[in-house]
Design a protein around this nucleic acid. Structure first.
Length: 521
RNA sequence: CGGGGCGUGGCUCAGCCUGGUAGAGCACCUGGUUCGGGACCAGGGGGUCGGAGGUUCAAAUCCUCUCGCCCCGACCA
């Protein structure tokens, strides 16, 4: 059916996104509502905003998150409830994280190993608190082929049980200690509410499991790995985190003490980005992991476990992303620089293509480069696409650049442009990537500082969360009652007691250590 | 698990109230003109309306059940 001119005209008009009205009440931000049909609203579009069809963070952060994950092709929903498919771009991000963290784990003396995904029920049940904590989240295998199994097998929600079982066989002498193992694997937890990367039924992680002769060595390991996570998050992910101690209410099922790194997302909610547990001798006692010390006495080992997961991808998305889409830290970005060629005429195309070879030659060894020479998309379309996908640096190469022997570079984080001579391209691009990495960390730090408040009393904490989000630092006497009251009255939870108390020295009259409270994912 | 919302070509959605056998934009394919911030023209392909059952001469539309996704809450290393 031929389209009439009226219809064609209508097609050209840019679709106006329904404006989201924000609503507030006494408890703060209560989520958006869409404008009703017919409701008169005006499009207030930032002139600098080029990406269409992406919800603004301030309109609806959760919606922005879902859209950006899927439009940037990080992940998609799988045909299984609560499960996702990590697409190549998202998996590339994970692989880069994995590579960098794995190097740090090895550098601290650990080795990788692999344990089975299936755990016999009897083994899982040995540590009471542990199994109780995980019971509602365990998926069970009950059949092999058509035959019912004599004993159910758990799909690992974590591997303490099966690893402890092996440690009890392997460890005999103090000479066998410490045992420092790590494994990269998948785990499964039957979550009621799932969100891409943040909480899915199956996810990928690394879990370190160590055994030590003394409580001191054990605690040192717990803090060492917590610091590895802190350093990894800040250096490689440009993600500032608070490293601290969890409350009893928030600690790992079966642990003596849990530590975590806590990051702040751009909607003001905190995200636990990694944990390190001191398991004490609980597991050693129930799994009978003993050794003979130098005096010939039989002792139980002291253990740790620690992990970070694909949730870190969610942290990177929500800590750095903006209204245009992702902003990936160069150190882990699957594509560090994208080259967008520009041409008008066949002659231009030939000269630009020839020049591209020199650009590639200069950069291929130094940076993860992608040349997008697809002809069916305009340069402008590509600019938006790669901004959405968070590529740290864009390199435009057109006839004007070729004539001058330069490349036009545009930073993703601040859109700063500069023309770089081909001769200095490699060192300059390397420097720019470092600058973007530093700027993302700096900007995340500034955001966290702006969104950290101080409170001395329950009333002050309550007042803060009545209007705002972010972290609230407050002295805490360590009582579960106080923690529960904060939670009840504000919806915020105690995230951690930071190990580094220096920033709060002299700020409060109370002698108690400062704890951080926040609404959290 | 409770409350609410939504499942219609790949995507975003209209149609459902008032049953009559499916539509738009984007995307995709072909040809051409384009290309420094999401180009344009012409032609074209593709869905049985999440799934199952029911009511009816007739169901995307009404009813029941079910699966999935989103939001809020509860729960949760």
């Amino acid at each position: 059916m031929p389209r009439d001119s009226g219809a064609r005209l209508a097609c050209r008009v840019r679709r106006v996104r329904p404006i989201i009205a924000r609503s507030f009440d006494a408890r703060g931000w209560r989520g958006p509502r869409r404008a009703r049909p017919g409701e008169l609203v005006s499009e207030t579009q930032d002139d600098k905003s080029f990406v269409e069809d992406l919800t603004d963070q301030s309109d609806d952060f959760a919606r922005w998150y879902n859209e950006v994950v899927r439009k940037a092709q990080l992940a998609d929903y799988a045909p299984v409830r609560g499960c996702m498919v990590i697409r190549p771009y998202g998996f590339g991000l994970w692989e880069n994280m994995q590579r960098l963290l794995d190097a740090r784990i090895r550098a601290t003396g650990h080795q990788n190993a692999y344990f089975p995904v299936l755990i016999p029920e009897s083994l899982l049940k040995l540590e009471a608190e542990h199994v109780e904590g995980f019971a509602p989240q365990v998926a069970w295998v009950t059949h092999g082929g058509n035959d019912k199994l004599e004993e159910r097998l758990a799909i690992r929600p974590t591997s303490e049980a099966i690893i402890c079982r092996m440690y009890s066989r392997w460890i005999e002498s103090y000479r066998d200690l410490p045992v420092l193992l790590n494994q990269w694997c998948n785990v499964m937890r039957w979550e009621k509410v799932t969100r891409l990367f943040l909480r899915t039924t199956e996810f990928l992680w690394q879990e370190g499991h160590t055994a030590h002769a003394t409580a001191e060595d054990c605690q040192a390991e717990v803090l060492r790995m917590l610091d590895v996570y802190r350093s990894f998050a800040e250096t490689d992910l440009a993600l500032p985190v608070h490293a601290g101690r969890k409350s009893d209410a928030e600690k790992f099922a079966g642990a003596e003490m849990t530590y975590s790194i806590e990051a702040l997302m751009r909607d003001g909610k905190a995200l636990q980005a990694g944990t390190s547990h001191n398991l004490g001798q609980h597991f050693a006692k129930v799994f009978d992991i003993t050794f003979q010390d130098e005096q010939g006495r039989r002792q139980h080992v002291h253990q740790t476990s620690w992990g970070v997961s694909t949730r870190l991808i969610g942290a990177v998305i929500m800590a750095h992303g903006d209204d245009q889409g992702l902003r990936l830290p160069p150190r882990v970005a699957p594509i560090q620089a994208v080259v967008v060629p520009i041409w008008r005429t066949p002659e231009d195309r030939a000269t630009v293509r020839a020049f591209l070879e020199r650009v590639k030659g200069a950069l291929t060894e130094r940076v993860r480069l992608h040349v997008d020479d697809r002809e069916q998309y305009t340069p402008g379309w590509k600019y938006n696409e790669y901004e959405l996908r968070g590529v740290p640096l864009r390199l435009e190469v057109g006839p004007k650049d070729v004539a001058k022997g330069t490349v036009m570079s545009v930073r993703r984080d601040n859109r700063a442009k500069e023309s770089i001579p081909l001769e200095s391209l490699a060192p300059r691009v390397t420097t720019l990537l470092d600058e973007v990495q530093a700027a993302l960390l700096e900007s995340a730090r500034a955001f966290r500082a702006e969104n950290t408040a101080f409170a001395s009393t329950l009333e002050e904490i309550e007042a803060h969360f009545g209007e705002r989000r972010g972290f609230v630092a407050a002295p805490w006497d360590g009582s579960p009652e106080f923690e529960a009251q904060v939670r009840e009255r504000t919806g915020a939870t105690m995230r951690c007691v930071p190990l580094d108390q220096a920033p709060y020295a002299g700020r409060f009259r109370a002698a108690h250590p400062v704890a951080l409270f926040a609404r959290a994912y």
